[in-house]
């Protein structure tokens, strides 16, 4: 009954999540709007484009009832530009995620806290210069399901593989930042990368935390004694030297 899995999504679950992403399809058959649990689908009228969740788009594609329009970032030219950015412009950190399409305004709105996979980051009108959160899964799924809809699928496949390698190296390197503890940012990271790197990164973090526990407790006590509390960083410099 109980779920025999560790905390954190498995790659299969990430792919499931990715199938909720919206993509743009060009229908080849009419299909009336359906009242699904997650809201009504748009009525499909060829040749008008319509946004659909990926799982439904794949279903239509498999039955040759629609073609999927690849997101602009999946085109070879965009991927090439992003790869250049990843290797040359910013060799240490990931390329930035797409900007949030809905601004936080002064009035609370339901779009304020929306996050992937419910952001339209892979529809036909999404920005071409950013890798969305589900880039790897989405790219792989589309290459698998509809290579005929993607221009130069082989080149896209190679570029995706290159990107994956560059970014995997960054993911591994990010472990160095975990040493001192605290919060470390992985801005721009993808879902599958998180899923892959989770056990390693969390393992390193927890291991280091347990090793450094007495030191952390000692530091806290000392800070409390000094009554400062705020400026923890400088107090420790000297001691660090002694340890390393």
């Amino acid at each position: 009954m109980a779920l025999p899995l560790q905390p954190g999504l498995t790659p299969m679950e990430v792919a499931f999540l990715c199938e909720m992403e919206l993509v743009t399809v060009i229908p080849r058959q009419r299909l009336e709007s359906l009242n699904l649990l997650g809201g009504p689908t748009p009525a499909l009228r060829p040749p008008h484009r319509a946004p659909l969740p990926l799982w439904l788009a794949l279903l239509l594609k498999r039955q040759r009832r629609a073609n999927i329009l690849p997101p602009p970032w999946l085109l070879p030219s965009s991927l090439d530009a992003i790869r250049k950015y990843e290797t040359d412009t910013s060799p240490q950190t990931f390329s930035p995620p797409p900007p949030h399409p809905y601004q936080i305004s002064s009035r609370p709105s339901p779009t304020d806290h929306i996050s992937p996979p419910f952001l339209p980051s892979s529809t036909a009108d999404s920005p071409p210069d950013y890798l969305p959160y589900h880039w790897l899964e989405l790219g792989e799924i589309l290459l698998e399901a509809c290579p005929d809809d993607i221009p130069e699928p082989d080149r896209v496949r190679t570029l995706l593989r290159d990107l994956r390698e560059v970014r995997m190296a960054k993911m591994r390197a990010s472990v160095k930042e975990l040493e001192g503890g605290g919060v470390s940012s992985l801005r721009g990271v993808g879902a599958m990368e998180v899923s892959e790197g989770r056990s390693f990164i969390v393992g390193v973090m927890d291991g280091l935390r347990k090793l450094g526990q007495s030191r952390e407790v000692a530091r806290r006590e000392r800070e409390e004694d000094e009554g400062g509390g705020g400026g923890g960083l400088d107090d420790d410099e000297d001691e660090d030297m002694g340890f390393e």
Binding site: P97, P98, H100, I104, S115, P116, Y133, L178, G180, G181, G182, V183, S184, S185, L186, R187, G188, V189, V194, I201, V202, M205, L208, R209, G212, R215, E216, R219, G232, L233, D236, D240
Partner: peptide, 24 residues
């Protein structure tokens, strides 16, 4: 604004919308 506690020091970091971080 996330206040993270670490071994050698505590730090505050501004987490932007859509930014993924590792924390306790």
């Amino acid at each position: 604004v996330v206040r993270g506690r670490g071994r050698d020091g505590d730090g505050e970091i501004d987490v932007q919308r859509g930014e993924v971080v590792v924390a306790r």
